[in-house]
Design a binder for these strands. Structure first.
Ligand SMILES: [Zn+2]
Ligand SMILES: [Zn+2]
Ligand SMILES: [Zn+2]
Ligand SMILES: [Zn+2]
Lengths: 131, 131
DNA sequence: TGTCTTATTGAGAATCATTGTCAATATGCC
DNA sequence: GGCATATTGACAATGATTCTCAATAAGACA
């Protein structure tokens, strides 16, 4: 049974207030900065459980860090991510799901998962001069 | 200037003989097993330079490891990867390319790149009992 | 409300891929 | 051959993530 704890709420609500993806480390830092005291390991565990419950998204940044984001929907979806400001658009694309599914089965693969993310510069960031 | 060394050749040819993606660690292990002596750091550096020269592909596995593969084509493509044995199928899917492209432009994104990889267990590995 | 079971926490150690250090070595150009 | 320097390798260092395990607290139940 999953118990409700102060820490779990703190992590979930902190995550919900952040517009883009954050790392566990950063989230932990922000929580501590605002007075919440909780262990880093707890943040990792809580984020993992949120992902497990489809209440958060996870993705690996180009430099190998795991980033998390509160899900607005629990349905499977993909992302369009601004590599400059981190702004994220959630994407649902049945065509891609079906493509991935049939691709895997055509080649005899089972238990297929897929990673489909699009990175670019959003309209706002495209208009800015280089950072 | 880039110099040709025994180690670079060893890494490049070892990589070329492997059908799928391998980690730097694994490749280093195989090289040592076949008698080549070279440092792990050298394998990392050489693989990075191969990627830099577009002579190798790199991707990050679901568990955060960097995997490398000798490029057979310089054309843009995706992969269907066995998470057990690393066997890889190269995929070209214009539909996905167009989808990603139009998705990005619909949302005002510029300079879009995408990550599209499918992981699963290949037919051979699916037939095996659990490792 | 009090008790009990056990999920959860937290501080720090441990893991593990990857990168940095730097003296020793080897390559390409003359 | 000789030189400048790119490269190597053994090892330390980094850094994110996970593990350990005793202490704590959530929730069920009486
Ligand atoms: Zn942006
Ligand atoms: Zn999908
Ligand atoms: Zn396989
Ligand atoms: Zn593509």
């Amino acid at each position: 049974m999953r118990r409700n704890t102060r820490q779990r709420d703190a992590v979930a609500s902190a995550l919900a207030q952040i517009p883009g993806f954050v790392s566990a480390q950063t989230l932990h830092g922000q929580l501590k900065a605002q007075g919440d005291t909780l262990g880093l390991a707890t943040v990792y565990r809580t984020l993992a459980s949120l992902v497990d419950d489809d209440r958060a998204d996870i993705l690996t940044s180009p430099d190998g860090e795991n980033l998390y984001r509160a899900c607005t929907t629990s349905r499977h979806h993909h992302h369009l991510i601004c590599r400059t400001c981190g702004m994220t658009v959630e994407i649902e694309a049945d065509a891609v799901e079906q493509w991935a599914q049939s691709l895997a089965s055509e080649h005899g693969f089972t238990g297929a998962h897929h990673v489909v993310d699009v990175f670019g510069d959003c309209a706002a960031c495209s208009a800015q001069p280089r950072a």
